[in-house]
Design a protein around this nucleic acid. Structure first.
Lengths: 106, 106
DNA sequence: ATTATACATCAAAATAATTTGATGTATCAA
DNA sequence: TTGATACATCAAATTATTTTGATGTATAAT
């Protein structure tokens, strides 16, 4: 039961990591640090095509990394802090609970 | 000049994120939390083929995420804390310095 | 010397991710 | 109601990543 939870968490982490693994998505994430952005903002700031941006946005959204808010014709995207904290927690578990034990076959 | 440095850093981050973006690599990283492991350890613990493991190890190594130490016929791999801290720092900058500013086109 | 072990590397094949250009849907303005 | 804008979605083409099986190299045991 608890294993299921950590499995779900690991799948979350895994998806989040995949969502970070593309340079254009990193760029988009970077833009979102200044607050909400719409697709048209991203187009102006990056010169990427609209469908290309929507594609990357979808991946970020499915990973839970961003949230969206529609207002009229526009959709505003922003970073979802919860998932950022989840990653931070995971990285922290790596830095804090990983062992330096030496291994020796033979 | 300073931009170059942050560009290098961003490329590091980017490579590190890619190195985290595969489920088998996450598994390998997980194993390394208990300390050093050799390829043969990973083989026993995961049932992945040797060349497959070497391939993933190479990616982790090129991202700077792991260090290696040879001893006779064996090579022991372990997590490189410095790069973990680099990622943590980056995630922290996202959580701490990202704005909630609302956007409104119209 | 010969053989076995541990691991790296390589090229080909298989698989997956990304990009492109077109089309679809909803909202709004004229 | 017509046209324009913002964005999503789709299928096909492109490109990148991963896997496989074979071969190579170094170390060490017999």
């Amino acid at each position: 039961m608890l294993e299921d939870i950590s499995k779900v968490k690991k799948e979350n982490i895994s998806k989040l990591m995949v969502s970070f693994s593309d340079p254009f998505r990193l760029e988009i994430i970077d833009l979102m640090m200044d607050g909400e952005v719409c697709v048209c903002d991203i187009m102006k700031l990056t010169n990427l095509s609209q469908s290309r941006i929507s594609y990357h946005i979808k991946i970020l959204k499915e990973a839970g990394l961003i949230s969206d808010r529609q207002e009229g014709r526009w959709v505003y995207y922003s970073l979802n802090k919860e998932s950022l904290f989840l990653i931070k927690e995971w990285i922290t578990s790596l830095t804090d609970h990983s062992s330096h034990r030496k291994r020796s076959c033979e």
